[in-house]
Design a protein around this nucleic acid. Structure first.
Lengths: 192, 192
DNA sequence: GCGCCGCGAGAACCATCGTTCTCACTGTGT
DNA sequence: ACACAGTGAGAACGATGGTTCTCGCGGCGC
């Protein structure tokens, strides 16, 4: 059910195109060409472009978080290392030649003002990502607030890398996260 | 020259619409209606939509940074307070009812993949903002790297507030910035 | 063999949108 | 008074893109 190969190849093509060029800049014809199918089949599986966009975002959300979690789970030395591994994963992602920022931030910027569906998926994705980071942070002995702050660093690194093209942001964010984390664990800073 | 009232009112209308709905979702007719002028005048002042978009972004860049700098200059108690005032200004911005994130992040997400002009203005804006923060940070006795980290917090707060709608991000970012700043000034954390 | 259902390929349709053109009108210099 | 330059209002044009339709064909049950 979740593994219809035609559906997946359509979503593969749509993801490449939407992520690289933006959603509105990609026509259904381009998706058809890239997927190597007929327009008829495309509309049978996704009755409208909005459905295709939503499916693209939903699948990317699930895969993105799963890939991150796998990388984090691969570095299970300490709870702190798990949290910091997030930024190594981000750094690898940023280094990919086709990196163009967070698909959900981009989609929200493009369609958040007019499409409640896109807004909902983007919000769901960010909520899940931030909750995941807060879980890692609390597991490392920090407060949820520190987890939220570390999430802000990760978000900032994504957009900064995308727009400015500087590869330093991931490492800067990691270093800041380490400081916030160790400080919080030692409770050096007094709470606001 | 810089103060043609018709030109400014067109840019006012375009800014409202582009920022609220996204650029591609706003037609030139909508700009004409909102500005209360004729299409002919519109095209006399901005020969193409691309020109209008670029002028919108360039003006917003200048005004945004000027408004921020004015707020910072109004709080000249200490160099540290100046840097932290940035986050108070952000919090005020985030609280505005029409807040929909950073116009440059949004525009980049929408058109960065296809428009070099939009990419260039967005990059210029982010470079200027980050340089400004790094200047405030070094003035407060921190390193430029700490300034860059604080910039990541600010960027993350913008997108998180826009997408998740949580009003806490500005304060969380401010608190994290304070920690990074004081720690860096005291050189408690060893560099990576 | 023979209807018939579903498919592939692509044209067609319809709305939208960026851009330009028409046309009637008005103010102005002589 | 009159030629004329520029304007407002809106139609028109051309391209694009989402969506649907046509047509010819191949497989499948009787």
């Amino acid at each position: 059910m979740d593994t219809d190969p035609v559906r997946e190849s359509i979503l593969d093509a749509a993801e490449d195109l939407f992520y690289a060029r933006g959603i509105q800049a990609v026509g259904m014809d381009a998706v058809r060409d890239a997927a190597g199918i007929t327009l008829r089949r495309l509309y049978q599986l996704f009755p409208s472009k909005g459905d295709l966009v939503e499916a693209y975002l939903v699948r990317r959300d699930a895969r993105w978080l799963r890939s991150l979690a796998r990388h984090v789970d691969a570095a299970t030395q300490t709870p702190q290392a798990r949290l910091l591994a997030v930024f190594d994963w981000l750094e690898d992602w940023f280094a990919q030649s086709d990196f163009r920022g967070c698909a959900f931030i981009n989609s929200f910027g493009e369609l958040g003002g007019t499409s409640p569906q896109v807004t909902a998926v983007a919000r769901h994705h960010k909520d899940a990502f931030h909750a995941y980071l807060q879980g890692l942070a609390t597991a490392a002995g920090a407060t949820a607030d520190t987890g939220a702050q570390i999430a802000l660093l990760a978000e900032g690194a994504m957009t900064t890398t995308a727009i400015c093209g500087t590869p330093a942001a991931a490492r800067q964010a990691k270093q800041a996260a380490l400081i916030l984390l160790t400080l919080d664990a030692r409770q050096v800073a007094s709470p606001a």
